[in-house]
Design a protein around this nucleic acid. Structure first.
Lengths: 258, 258
DNA sequence: TATATTGCTCCTGAGTTCAGGAGCATCATT
DNA sequence: AATGATGCTCCTGAACTCAGGAGCAATATA
C-alpha cells in the first residue's frame, strides 16, 4: 500500500482494519473490482463485499453498475465535509442535552453548586446524612421533606446529635424524633423572610458538621437547591442556632424513642 | 440516574460504560466524592479512581484537592468546544493526507481515472494484464517499462495474443517476445508527437480487449497515468494499429520462445 | 450445457475491551 | 496502636469485535 500510516488513523475514524485497507487502497488505486481488491489487499474475497457495502453506506465509496462492479473512492473533501458536519451536529445536540443537566455554572472555588433537579437535591441530602460526623442542624418548613427524611434523621441520630428545627410546634407530631423551636431571629431569617413577596420560600436548610450546608427553595413551584461545601459561616450559624432553640416537650403523645 | 438515554450517546463519544455513568452522574449530582460515586453508581470503588483519572485526563471532570477529594463535571460547553476543535483538526489533517492520494477528480461517467503515483500506475498495468481476455496491444517507448513488464507480457502471451509495438527495431532485443514496428502514422501520433516541445512524452500505452486503455506520460520527470475503462475508441484504434504493424524478425539472436 | 466468476451470507476462533472484584499501602481519626 | 476510610493497582472472566475463511446461489462465459 502507498502509505501504511493511514490505516490507524482511518481506524480512529471508526473503520475496521478491512475498511481502512480497502478505502486507502481505493484512494491510491483509484478504481478496482472486488476481486482485484481481494488480490491486492489479501482480504478474503467474500468479506470484500461486506466491507465495500459498509463503506458505501458510510459514503466513502461509490460503485459503478458494470459487471463486474467497479469501485472507487468518493471525493475526499466532500466526504470529509459531510463527516465533519455529522459529528458537529452530534456534539452540539449532546452538549445541549448535557447542559440541561448542568444548567448553571458552579463556583468551584467557593465550593458552591446549584442543584436544579429534585433528584440531585434528594441525593445530596442523603449524602449529607450519610457523611455527617459530628452533628446535623436541620431547619424544616415543609411536610413533604419531613416525611421524606424522617427515617434518615432517626438513623443519623443513632450516631450523632440531630437537631430538627421547625417553625410551628404542631409539626413536631410529624416527626419521630425530638424537635426544636427556633427563636424569633431564626424564624425571621429563615422561616418568614420579608423580602420577596412569594418567591423563594425556604423549605429546608441543613448544616452538617459546621462545614457544609444545603438550602432548598421553592421558587414558583420549582424546587431549587444550593449546596455549599466550604461554607465558612456554617460553623458560626449552627452554633448560634443551637444556642437559641427550645426543645419541644412531647405532650400527651405516644412515647418517644429514648 | 436522571437520564439513561445519555449513556449510549456518551459511549459513542468514546467513553466506556463506567466513564459514561460517572460523567452523567456528576453532571446531575454536581459534586461527589469517589465513595459516593461508588455507592450511587454501584461501580466497584477501586475502579472509580481509574475511571475518574481517565475522565480528568480527557478533560471532562475536575477534582478538588480536599480530603476526601471531591469531583465535579467540567463546564460542558467549554469541554465540548474543545472536543469539537480537536475532532475538526483531526479530520482536516486526515482529509488533507487523503487528498494527496486522490489529488485530481475522477470522471466516473467516462470511466476515466488519473493515476498520480507510480504505484497506482504499476498496479493498474498489472491488473490489465491479469484481466485481459482477448488481446493486448502495448506501445512501448521506454526501456524502464520494457524491463518492468517483460515478464507480464510473456505470461499473458500464454493465454492471449500480445502485441508489443516499439519505435526502434533495436528495442526488440530488450524484450523476450516477438515485437512489432508501427507505421509512420503510429510513430507520428504516439512516439513522436510534434505539439508540446518537451513536455508530455508518451512512455507507454496499453489497449486491452479493445475496451480499456491506459496511457503513461512523462511530464517533466514525473510519471502520470490515465486509465480509461470505457474507452469507446479503443476497439477501433487497436484494430487499426494491428492492421498497420510489421513483425520484427529475430535476427542472429538466441532463439525465441516458440 | 459445463465451468468459472461474482455477489453474498454465515461461521469460527483469536484478540481485545471492559465490567466486576480482590487486595494493599497510606492516611486520618480514634 | 487500632480501626476504618481512601487512593490505587492488578486480576479474571464474560462479552464483543473482527480477521479469516467456508460455502452457496445467481450470473456470466465458454
Amino acid at each position: 500500500m502507498i502509505d501504511e500510516s493511514l490505516i490507524p488513523e482511518l481506524k480512529d475514524l471508526g473503520m475496521s482494519e478491512y475498511e481502512a485497507k480497502v478505502y486507502s487502497m481505493l484512494l491510491a488505486l483509484r478504481v478496482a473490482s472486488a476481486r482485484e481488491i481481494h488480490e491486492i489487499t489479501k482480504i478474503p474475497r467474500g468479506r470484500v463485499y461486506e466491507t465495500l457495502t459498509v463503506l458505501i453506506e458510510k459514503g466513502y465509496v461509490n460503485s459503478s453498475n458494470e459487471n463486474p462492479a467497479r469501485y472507487s473512492a468518493a471525493d475526499v473533501s466532500r466526504t470529509f465535509d459531510r463527516i465533519k458536519h455529522k459529528r458537529l451536529d452530534f456534539l452540539d445536540k449532546l452538549s445541549e442535552k448535557l447542559q440541561n443537566l448542568e444548567k448553571e455554572r458552579s463556583e468551584v472555588l467557593l465550593g458552591a453548586y446549584e442543584l436544579r433537579t429534585i433528584w440531585a437535591i434528594d441525593k445530596q441530602i442523603r449524602l449529607i446524612f450519610a457523611r455527617a460526623k459530628s452533628e446535623i442542624v436541620i431547619l424544616l418548613n415543609d411536610e413533604f421533606f419531613m416525611d421524606k427524611y424522617a427515617a434518615d434523621m432517626v438513623k443519623a441520630k443513632k450516631r450523632i446529635p440531630v437537631y430538627p428545627i421547625i417553625e410551628d410546634e404542631s409539626f413536631a407530631e410529624k416527626l419521630p424524633l425530638k424537635c426544636y423551636l427556633g427563636d424569633k431571629d431564626v424564624n425571621a431569617a429563615f422561616f418568614r423572610p420579608q423580602q420577596e413577596p412569594e418567591a423563594s420560600r425556604i423549605k429546608l436548610i441543613i448544616y452538617s458538621d459546621g462545614r457544609e450546608s444545603l438550602l432548598v427553595f421553592d421558587r414558583e413551584g420549582i424546587y431549587e437547591g444550593v449546596f455549599l461545601s466550604n461554607h465558612i459561616h456554617a460553623a458560626y450559624i449552627s452554633r448560634m442556632i443551637l444556642k437559641n432553640i427550645t426543645e419541644i416537650k412531647p405532650l400527651k403523645k405516644k412515647k418517644q424513642k429514648k
